[in-house]
């Protein structure tokens, strides 16, 4: 069992229940905005405390592939795939398969589908 300190982050409560497109230029509540205003700061806090950022994906209307890829794949491109995998965990009871999808965006952040979609 992981005994490290947990830093909870609910996207619906702390950012938006209606996450938008990939970039700021494309519209409101974008993944780029989420990454730069919320996710990076909260991730840095968790890493500095040797803790885990516990991301709750529930509570919103749904996520576009581009939002999840840009936010979490983008985090992995900036901070490194392994560091992100070591310090971020996900929860989704409403859409459990989302967790696997997000983990694949992180693993493939520097290759594969991330490049294809950009």
């Amino acid at each position: 069992m992981d005994t490290r300190q947990r830093f909870p982050l609910s996207i619906a409560a702390e950012f938006s229940r209606t996450p938008g497109p990939r970039t700021r230029a494309e519209g409101e509540h974008s993944a780029e905005e989420f990454l730069e205003t919320v996710l990076l700061r909260r991730f840095n806090e968790a890493v500095a405390s040797q803790g885990v950022l516990f991301v709750d994906l529930d509570g919103g209307y749904g996520y576009g592939t581009s939002f999840l890829e840009e936010a979490f794949g983008g985090l992995a491109r900036r901070k490194g795939v392994q560091l992100v995998l070591d310090h971020v965990t996900f929860k989704s009871e409403e859409e459990p398969y989302l967790v696997d999808d997000v983990l694949s965006y992180i693993r493939e952040a520097l290759t594969g589908s991330a490049k294809r979609q950009r």
């Binding site: 497109p21 494309e26 749904g62 939002f67």
Partner: peptide
């Protein structure tokens, strides 16, 4: 197909 279909339907510029 599940993952790809999700990408086709929600890839940017969706949700605009």
């Amino acid at each position: 197909n599940r993952e790809e279909y999700r990408a086709v339907l929600t890839e940017t510029p969706f949700p605009i």
